[in-house]
Design a protein around this nucleic acid. Structure first.
Lengths: 196, 196
DNA sequence: GGAATCAATACGGGTGTACATATTTTACCG
DNA sequence: CGGTAAAATATGTACACCCGTATTGATTCC
Protein backbone atom coordinates (compact mmCIF):
# COMPACT_ATOMS: atom_id res chain seq x y z
CA UNK A 1 0.00 0.00 0.00
CA UNK A 2 1.40 3.37 -1.02
CA UNK A 3 1.98 5.85 1.73
CA UNK A 4 -0.79 8.46 1.45
CA UNK A 5 1.29 11.60 1.30
CA UNK A 6 -1.75 13.77 0.68
CA UNK A 7 -3.39 12.55 3.84
CA UNK A 8 -0.28 13.46 5.79
CA UNK A 9 -0.25 16.91 4.25
CA UNK A 10 -3.91 17.45 5.03
CA UNK A 11 -3.36 16.42 8.63
CA UNK A 12 -0.26 18.55 9.15
CA UNK A 13 -1.51 21.71 7.50
CA UNK A 14 -5.04 21.12 8.67
CA UNK A 15 -3.85 20.88 12.26
CA UNK A 16 -2.09 24.20 11.85
CA UNK A 17 -5.12 25.87 10.29
CA UNK A 18 -7.56 24.57 12.88
CA UNK A 19 -5.21 25.52 15.70
CA UNK A 20 -4.97 29.04 14.33
CA UNK A 21 -8.54 29.67 13.27
CA UNK A 22 -10.62 27.20 15.26
CA UNK A 23 -12.47 24.10 14.15
CA UNK A 24 -15.82 25.55 13.16
CA UNK A 25 -14.19 28.51 11.46
CA UNK A 26 -11.94 26.29 9.34
CA UNK A 27 -13.69 25.04 6.24
CA UNK A 28 -12.69 21.90 4.42
CA UNK A 29 -11.70 24.11 1.50
CA UNK A 30 -9.46 26.21 3.74
CA UNK A 31 -7.76 23.05 4.87
CA UNK A 32 -7.18 21.42 1.49
CA UNK A 33 -6.01 24.73 0.09
CA UNK A 34 -3.45 25.09 2.88
CA UNK A 35 -2.33 21.55 2.19
CA UNK A 36 -2.12 22.21 -1.54
CA UNK A 37 -4.15 19.16 -2.51
CA UNK A 38 -7.37 18.82 -4.50
CA UNK A 39 -10.69 18.75 -2.76
CA UNK A 40 -11.40 15.13 -3.50
CA UNK A 41 -8.48 14.07 -1.35
CA UNK A 42 -10.32 15.16 1.75
CA UNK A 43 -13.41 13.08 1.07
CA UNK A 44 -11.11 10.28 0.09
CA UNK A 45 -9.21 10.08 3.36
CA UNK A 46 -11.81 11.30 5.82
CA UNK A 47 -15.40 10.16 5.94
CA UNK A 48 -16.46 13.42 7.60
CA UNK A 49 -14.90 16.61 8.89
CA UNK A 50 -15.42 15.28 12.39
CA UNK A 51 -13.29 12.21 11.60
CA UNK A 52 -10.59 14.58 10.42
CA UNK A 53 -10.93 16.50 13.67
CA UNK A 54 -10.38 13.33 15.67
CA UNK A 55 -7.21 12.59 13.73
CA UNK A 56 -5.64 16.00 14.21
CA UNK A 57 -6.55 15.73 17.87
CA UNK A 58 -4.45 12.59 18.09
CA UNK A 59 -1.71 14.19 16.04
CA UNK A 60 -1.62 17.12 18.43
CA UNK A 61 -1.67 14.89 21.48
CA UNK A 62 1.25 12.67 20.39
CA UNK A 63 4.08 15.04 21.36
CA UNK A 64 2.25 15.86 24.57
CA UNK A 65 2.18 12.19 25.49
CA UNK A 66 5.85 11.96 24.66
CA UNK A 67 6.62 14.95 26.84
CA UNK A 68 4.68 13.51 29.74
CA UNK A 69 6.51 10.20 29.44
CA UNK A 70 9.85 11.98 29.51
CA UNK A 71 8.98 14.24 32.42
CA UNK A 72 6.00 13.50 34.66
CA UNK A 73 6.39 9.74 34.41
CA UNK A 74 10.17 9.63 34.31
CA UNK A 75 11.14 8.15 37.66
CA UNK A 76 14.84 8.70 36.92
CA UNK A 77 14.49 12.39 37.73
CA UNK A 78 13.44 14.24 40.91
CA UNK A 79 9.66 14.70 40.87
CA UNK A 80 9.43 18.46 41.23
CA UNK A 81 12.07 18.92 38.57
CA UNK A 82 10.00 16.73 36.27
CA UNK A 83 6.93 18.82 36.93
CA UNK A 84 8.85 21.99 36.19
CA UNK A 85 10.18 20.56 32.94
CA UNK A 86 6.71 19.52 31.93
CA UNK A 87 5.17 22.90 32.65
CA UNK A 88 7.91 24.93 31.01
CA UNK A 89 8.31 22.78 27.94
CA UNK A 90 4.56 22.50 27.49
CA UNK A 91 3.97 26.22 27.78
CA UNK A 92 6.95 27.17 25.65
CA UNK A 93 6.10 24.83 22.81
CA UNK A 94 2.63 26.37 22.54
CA UNK A 95 3.71 29.98 22.80
CA UNK A 96 6.57 30.03 20.34
CA UNK A 97 6.91 32.17 17.22
CA UNK A 98 4.88 34.98 18.74
CA UNK A 99 1.74 32.97 18.15
CA UNK A 100 -0.95 32.76 20.76
CA UNK A 101 -3.21 30.04 19.58
CA UNK A 102 -3.62 28.46 22.96
CA UNK A 103 -3.76 24.72 23.41
CA UNK A 104 -5.70 22.85 20.75
CA UNK A 105 -7.16 20.66 23.47
CA UNK A 106 -8.53 23.63 25.34
CA UNK A 107 -9.75 25.27 22.15
CA UNK A 108 -11.64 22.14 21.19
CA UNK A 109 -13.07 21.92 24.67
CA UNK A 110 -14.44 25.43 24.47
CA UNK A 111 -16.20 24.86 21.15
CA UNK A 112 -19.23 23.21 22.64
CA UNK A 113 -21.02 22.07 19.56
CA UNK A 114 -22.98 18.88 20.08
CA UNK A 115 -22.17 17.86 16.52
CA UNK A 116 -18.57 17.16 17.46
CA UNK A 117 -19.52 14.90 20.33
CA UNK A 118 -17.01 12.18 19.54
CA UNK A 119 -14.26 14.79 19.70
CA UNK A 120 -15.52 15.97 23.06
CA UNK A 121 -15.55 12.40 24.34
CA UNK A 122 -11.97 11.76 23.27
CA UNK A 123 -10.99 15.09 24.77
CA UNK A 124 -12.40 14.10 28.14
CA UNK A 125 -10.27 10.95 28.06
CA UNK A 126 -7.16 12.93 27.20
CA UNK A 127 -7.76 15.42 29.98
CA UNK A 128 -8.24 12.61 32.49
CA UNK A 129 -5.00 11.01 31.37
CA UNK A 130 -3.11 14.26 31.79
CA UNK A 131 -4.52 14.72 35.27
CA UNK A 132 -3.56 11.17 36.21
CA UNK A 133 0.00 11.78 35.07
CA UNK A 134 0.28 15.01 37.02
CA UNK A 135 -1.08 13.27 40.10
CA UNK A 136 1.42 10.44 39.63
CA UNK A 137 4.27 12.94 39.65
CA UNK A 138 2.90 14.74 42.69
CA UNK A 139 2.66 11.49 44.62
CA UNK A 140 6.25 10.77 43.71
CA UNK A 141 7.15 14.19 45.07
CA UNK A 142 5.43 13.40 48.33
CA UNK A 143 7.24 10.09 48.56
CA UNK A 144 10.54 11.87 47.91
CA UNK A 145 9.62 14.37 50.65
CA UNK A 146 9.67 17.21 48.16
CA UNK A 147 6.09 17.95 49.10
CA UNK A 148 4.36 17.63 52.47
CA UNK A 149 2.75 14.29 53.26
CA UNK A 150 -0.66 15.87 53.63
CA UNK A 151 -0.72 17.02 50.03
CA UNK A 152 -3.97 16.07 48.29
CA UNK A 153 -2.33 14.98 45.07
CA UNK A 154 -5.51 14.18 43.16
CA UNK A 155 -7.09 17.52 43.95
CA UNK A 156 -3.90 19.43 43.28
CA UNK A 157 -3.34 17.68 39.95
CA UNK A 158 -6.68 18.80 38.55
CA UNK A 159 -6.09 22.29 39.90
CA UNK A 160 -2.69 22.51 38.20
CA UNK A 161 -4.16 21.19 34.99
CA UNK A 162 -6.86 23.84 35.09
CA UNK A 163 -4.32 26.56 35.76
CA UNK A 164 -2.21 25.33 32.87
CA UNK A 165 -5.03 25.32 30.35
CA UNK A 166 -6.44 28.53 31.75
CA UNK A 167 -3.16 30.39 31.45
CA UNK A 168 -2.83 29.32 27.81
CA UNK A 169 -6.38 30.49 27.18
CA UNK A 170 -5.67 33.88 28.74
CA UNK A 171 -2.39 34.18 26.86
CA UNK A 172 -4.28 33.66 23.65
CA UNK A 173 -7.08 36.07 24.47
CA UNK A 174 -4.78 38.77 25.80
CA UNK A 175 -2.08 38.10 23.20
CA UNK A 176 0.54 38.19 25.87
CA UNK A 177 3.05 35.95 27.55
CA UNK A 178 2.12 37.34 30.95
CA UNK A 179 -0.51 34.74 31.92
CA UNK A 180 1.70 31.76 31.14
CA UNK A 181 4.76 33.36 32.72
CA UNK A 182 2.85 34.03 35.91
CA UNK A 183 1.45 30.52 35.84
CA UNK A 184 4.95 29.07 35.91
CA UNK A 185 6.12 31.56 38.50
CA UNK A 186 3.29 31.15 40.98
CA UNK A 187 3.10 27.41 40.45
CA UNK A 188 6.61 26.85 41.67
CA UNK A 189 7.04 29.71 44.09
CA UNK A 190 3.83 29.15 46.00
CA UNK A 191 2.00 25.99 45.18
CA UNK A 192 4.95 23.68 44.84
CA UNK A 193 7.52 25.29 47.04
CA UNK A 194 9.05 22.64 49.33
CA UNK A 195 7.57 24.47 52.30
CA UNK A 196 4.03 24.46 50.94
CA UNK B 1 -39.08 55.28 20.39
CA UNK B 2 -40.85 52.05 21.10
CA UNK B 3 -38.95 49.63 23.26
CA UNK B 4 -37.51 47.02 20.90
CA UNK B 5 -38.82 43.90 22.57
CA UNK B 6 -37.57 41.75 19.75
CA UNK B 7 -34.04 42.99 20.21
CA UNK B 8 -34.19 42.03 23.86
CA UNK B 9 -35.47 38.59 22.97
CA UNK B 10 -32.74 38.09 20.41
CA UNK B 11 -30.10 39.10 22.92
CA UNK B 12 -31.43 36.94 25.73
CA UNK B 13 -32.08 33.80 23.72
CA UNK B 14 -29.10 34.41 21.49
CA UNK B 15 -26.83 34.61 24.50
CA UNK B 16 -28.18 31.29 25.67
CA UNK B 17 -27.74 29.66 22.26
CA UNK B 18 -24.22 30.98 21.74
CA UNK B 19 -23.25 29.99 25.27
CA UNK B 20 -24.50 26.46 24.63
CA UNK B 21 -23.35 25.89 21.08
CA UNK B 22 -20.53 28.35 20.54
CA UNK B 23 -20.40 31.48 18.44
CA UNK B 24 -19.31 30.08 15.08
CA UNK B 25 -21.63 27.13 15.43
CA UNK B 26 -24.65 29.33 16.11
CA UNK B 27 -26.20 30.64 12.93
CA UNK B 28 -28.28 33.77 12.78
CA UNK B 29 -31.23 31.58 11.89
CA UNK B 30 -30.66 29.42 14.98
CA UNK B 31 -30.71 32.56 17.06
CA UNK B 32 -33.81 34.21 15.65
CA UNK B 33 -35.61 30.88 15.77
CA UNK B 34 -34.78 30.46 19.46
CA UNK B 35 -35.98 34.01 20.04
CA UNK B 36 -39.18 33.35 18.08
CA UNK B 37 -38.82 36.41 15.90
CA UNK B 38 -38.64 36.83 12.12
CA UNK B 39 -35.32 36.93 10.39
CA UNK B 40 -35.57 40.57 9.44
CA UNK B 41 -35.43 41.58 13.08
CA UNK B 42 -31.83 40.50 13.29
CA UNK B 43 -30.64 42.61 10.38
CA UNK B 44 -32.76 45.37 11.77
CA UNK B 45 -31.16 45.54 15.18
CA UNK B 46 -27.64 44.35 14.44
CA UNK B 47 -25.48 45.54 11.58
CA UNK B 48 -23.52 42.29 11.60
CA UNK B 49 -23.34 39.07 13.55
CA UNK B 50 -20.16 40.38 15.12
CA UNK B 51 -22.03 43.42 16.47
CA UNK B 52 -24.52 41.02 17.99
CA UNK B 53 -21.65 39.07 19.51
CA UNK B 54 -20.32 42.20 21.15
CA UNK B 55 -23.70 42.93 22.68
CA UNK B 56 -24.21 39.51 24.19
CA UNK B 57 -20.67 39.76 25.52
CA UNK B 58 -21.67 42.88 27.41
CA UNK B 59 -24.92 41.26 28.49
CA UNK B 60 -23.00 38.31 29.88
CA UNK B 61 -20.44 40.51 31.58
CA UNK B 62 -22.97 42.70 33.40
CA UNK B 63 -23.79 40.32 36.26
CA UNK B 64 -20.10 39.48 36.55
CA UNK B 65 -19.29 43.13 37.06
CA UNK B 66 -22.04 43.35 39.61
CA UNK B 67 -20.69 40.32 41.44
CA UNK B 68 -17.18 41.76 41.49
CA UNK B 69 -18.45 45.04 42.89
CA UNK B 70 -20.29 43.23 45.65
CA UNK B 71 -17.42 40.95 46.57
CA UNK B 72 -13.88 41.68 45.36
CA UNK B 73 -14.29 45.45 45.60
CA UNK B 74 -16.52 45.53 48.67
CA UNK B 75 -14.29 46.95 51.37
CA UNK B 76 -16.98 46.41 53.98
CA UNK B 77 -16.14 42.71 54.13
CA UNK B 78 -12.94 40.81 55.03
CA UNK B 79 -10.83 40.40 51.86
CA UNK B 80 -10.43 36.62 51.83
CA UNK B 81 -14.11 36.17 52.51
CA UNK B 82 -14.83 38.40 49.52
CA UNK B 83 -12.57 36.33 47.34
CA UNK B 84 -14.28 33.15 48.45
CA UNK B 85 -17.70 34.60 47.74
CA UNK B 86 -16.57 35.71 44.33
CA UNK B 87 -15.12 32.33 43.41
CA UNK B 88 -18.03 30.30 44.73
CA UNK B 89 -20.79 32.47 43.35
CA UNK B 90 -19.05 32.79 40.02
CA UNK B 91 -18.50 29.06 39.63
CA UNK B 92 -21.93 28.12 40.87
CA UNK B 93 -23.77 30.51 38.61
CA UNK B 94 -22.06 28.99 35.58
CA UNK B 95 -22.48 25.37 36.55
CA UNK B 96 -26.13 25.35 37.52
CA UNK B 97 -28.92 23.25 35.99
CA UNK B 98 -26.53 20.44 35.15
CA UNK B 99 -25.21 22.47 32.27
CA UNK B 100 -21.53 22.68 31.56
CA UNK B 101 -21.20 25.40 29.06
CA UNK B 102 -18.18 26.95 30.65
CA UNK B 103 -17.72 30.68 30.83
CA UNK B 104 -18.80 32.59 27.74
CA UNK B 105 -15.73 34.78 28.11
CA UNK B 106 -13.42 31.80 28.00
CA UNK B 107 -15.37 30.22 25.17
CA UNK B 108 -15.08 33.36 23.10
CA UNK B 109 -11.40 33.56 23.90
CA UNK B 110 -10.79 30.05 22.60
CA UNK B 111 -12.51 30.72 19.29
CA UNK B 112 -9.55 32.36 17.64
CA UNK B 113 -11.10 33.55 14.44
CA UNK B 114 -9.57 36.76 13.17
CA UNK B 115 -12.98 37.79 11.85
CA UNK B 116 -14.22 38.45 15.37
CA UNK B 117 -11.31 40.68 16.22
CA UNK B 118 -13.37 43.38 17.88
CA UNK B 119 -14.80 40.76 20.21
CA UNK B 120 -11.31 39.55 21.04
CA UNK B 121 -10.22 43.11 21.79
CA UNK B 122 -13.13 43.72 24.16
CA UNK B 123 -12.46 40.36 25.76
CA UNK B 124 -8.88 41.32 26.52
CA UNK B 125 -10.12 44.45 28.26
CA UNK B 126 -12.60 42.46 30.32
CA UNK B 127 -9.97 39.95 31.36
CA UNK B 128 -7.62 42.71 32.42
CA UNK B 129 -10.36 44.30 34.47
CA UNK B 130 -11.10 41.03 36.22
CA UNK B 131 -7.45 40.55 37.01
CA UNK B 132 -7.18 44.07 38.39
CA UNK B 133 -10.14 43.44 40.67
CA UNK B 134 -8.71 40.19 41.97
CA UNK B 135 -5.39 41.91 42.61
CA UNK B 136 -7.18 44.70 44.45
CA UNK B 137 -8.78 42.20 46.77
CA UNK B 138 -5.51 40.37 47.32
CA UNK B 139 -3.76 43.60 48.27
CA UNK B 140 -6.54 44.30 50.73
CA UNK B 141 -5.96 40.85 52.19
CA UNK B 142 -2.28 41.62 52.63
CA UNK B 143 -3.12 44.90 54.29
CA UNK B 144 -5.50 43.11 56.62
CA UNK B 145 -2.74 40.59 57.36
CA UNK B 146 -4.85 37.77 55.98
CA UNK B 147 -2.03 37.05 53.53
CA UNK B 148 1.72 37.35 54.04
CA UNK B 149 3.31 40.69 53.20
CA UNK B 150 5.54 39.14 50.58
CA UNK B 151 2.58 38.03 48.47
CA UNK B 152 2.99 39.03 44.82
CA UNK B 153 -0.59 40.14 44.37
CA UNK B 154 -0.37 40.98 40.67
CA UNK B 155 1.15 37.64 39.78
CA UNK B 156 -1.22 35.73 41.99
CA UNK B 157 -4.26 37.51 40.61
CA UNK B 158 -3.54 36.44 37.04
CA UNK B 159 -2.79 32.93 38.25
CA UNK B 160 -6.10 32.70 40.10
CA UNK B 161 -7.92 34.07 37.08
CA UNK B 162 -6.31 31.44 34.86
CA UNK B 163 -7.23 28.69 37.31
CA UNK B 164 -10.80 29.94 37.45
CA UNK B 165 -11.27 30.02 33.69
CA UNK B 166 -9.35 26.78 33.26
CA UNK B 167 -11.46 24.91 35.79
CA UNK B 168 -14.64 26.04 34.02
CA UNK B 169 -13.16 24.90 30.72
CA UNK B 170 -12.31 21.48 32.13
CA UNK B 171 -15.71 21.18 33.78
CA UNK B 172 -17.30 21.77 30.42
CA UNK B 173 -15.05 19.36 28.53
CA UNK B 174 -15.27 16.62 31.15
CA UNK B 175 -18.93 17.31 31.91
CA UNK B 176 -18.21 17.18 35.57
CA UNK B 177 -18.22 19.36 38.64
CA UNK B 178 -14.89 17.93 39.76
CA UNK B 179 -12.61 20.54 38.18
CA UNK B 180 -14.47 23.52 39.60
CA UNK B 181 -14.91 21.87 42.98
CA UNK B 182 -11.20 21.16 43.21
CA UNK B 183 -10.45 24.68 42.06
CA UNK B 184 -12.35 26.12 45.00
CA UNK B 185 -10.90 23.57 47.39
CA UNK B 186 -7.24 23.98 46.47
CA UNK B 187 -7.55 27.72 46.06
CA UNK B 188 -8.52 28.26 49.67
CA UNK B 189 -6.80 25.34 51.35
CA UNK B 190 -3.38 25.91 49.78
CA UNK B 191 -3.01 29.09 47.83
CA UNK B 192 -4.95 31.39 50.10
CA UNK B 193 -4.60 29.72 53.45
CA UNK B 194 -3.55 32.33 56.03
CA UNK B 195 -0.28 30.49 56.48
CA UNK B 196 0.66 30.52 52.82
C1' DG C 1 -45.57 62.79 9.78
C1' DG C 2 -41.47 60.88 10.69
C1' DA C 3 -38.71 57.68 12.78
C1' DA C 4 -38.25 53.30 14.58
C1' DT C 5 -39.63 48.57 14.52
C1' DC C 6 -41.63 44.60 12.30
C1' DA C 7 -41.70 41.37 8.64
C1' DA C 8 -41.03 38.51 4.36
C1' DT C 9 -38.23 37.31 0.86
C1' DA C 10 -34.07 37.33 -2.06
C1' DC C 11 -29.13 37.12 -3.19
C1' DG C 12 -24.55 35.68 -3.87
C1' DG C 13 -21.49 32.83 -2.11
C1' DG C 14 -19.76 29.21 1.06
C1' DT C 15 -20.75 24.61 3.41
C1' DG C 16 -19.90 19.51 4.01
C1' DT C 17 -20.31 15.68 1.31
C1' DA C 18 -21.07 12.59 -2.90
C1' DC C 19 -19.73 10.78 -7.10
C1' DA C 20 -17.39 9.28 -11.32
C1' DT C 21 -13.16 8.40 -13.18
C1' DA C 22 -8.19 8.23 -13.71
C1' DT C 23 -3.93 6.83 -11.84
C1' DT C 24 -0.81 4.37 -9.01
C1' DT C 25 0.56 0.76 -5.85
C1' DT C 26 0.09 -3.74 -3.80
C1' DA C 27 -1.00 -8.71 -3.84
C1' DC C 28 -1.58 -12.91 -5.84
C1' DC C 29 -0.90 -16.61 -9.15
C1' DG C 30 1.09 -18.85 -13.12
C1' DC D 1 9.87 -13.76 -12.32
C1' DG D 2 6.01 -11.35 -15.06
C1' DG D 3 1.41 -10.23 -15.45
C1' DT D 4 -2.78 -9.04 -13.98
C1' DA D 5 -6.64 -8.22 -10.88
C1' DA D 6 -7.85 -5.83 -6.78
C1' DA D 7 -7.32 -2.13 -3.94
C1' DA D 8 -6.00 2.22 -2.61
C1' DT D 9 -5.15 6.92 -3.80
C1' DA D 10 -5.69 11.08 -6.79
C1' DT D 11 -8.66 14.50 -8.87
C1' DG D 12 -12.33 17.36 -10.74
C1' DT D 13 -16.86 18.44 -10.48
C1' DA D 14 -21.64 18.47 -8.75
C1' DC D 15 -25.21 18.62 -5.35
C1' DA D 16 -28.28 20.16 -1.95
C1' DC D 17 -28.34 23.05 1.61
C1' DC D 18 -26.98 26.79 4.88
C1' DC D 19 -24.57 31.14 5.61
C1' DG D 20 -24.55 36.33 6.68
C1' DT D 21 -26.51 40.17 4.80
C1' DA D 22 -29.53 43.22 1.78
C1' DT D 23 -33.75 44.97 0.21
C1' DT D 24 -38.32 46.45 0.29
C1' DG D 25 -42.45 47.72 2.24
C1' DA D 26 -45.93 47.48 6.08
C1' DT D 27 -46.91 48.73 10.75
C1' DT D 28 -46.61 51.10 15.02
C1' DC D 29 -45.72 54.71 18.24
C1' DC D 30 -44.14 59.54 19.63
Amino acid sequence: MRKPTHKTKILQEGLRVVHERGYSASSVRDIIQAAGVPQGSFTNHFATKEAFGLEILELFYEPIQKLMAETLLNDALPPLKRLRMWAETGVNSLNQNNQWNGCLLGNFGAEANAEIDTIQARLAEIFSEQQRNIAYCLRAAVKARELPAKTKCGDLAVFIHASFEGSLLLAKAQRSLVPTERFKKVLFSTLLSPSA
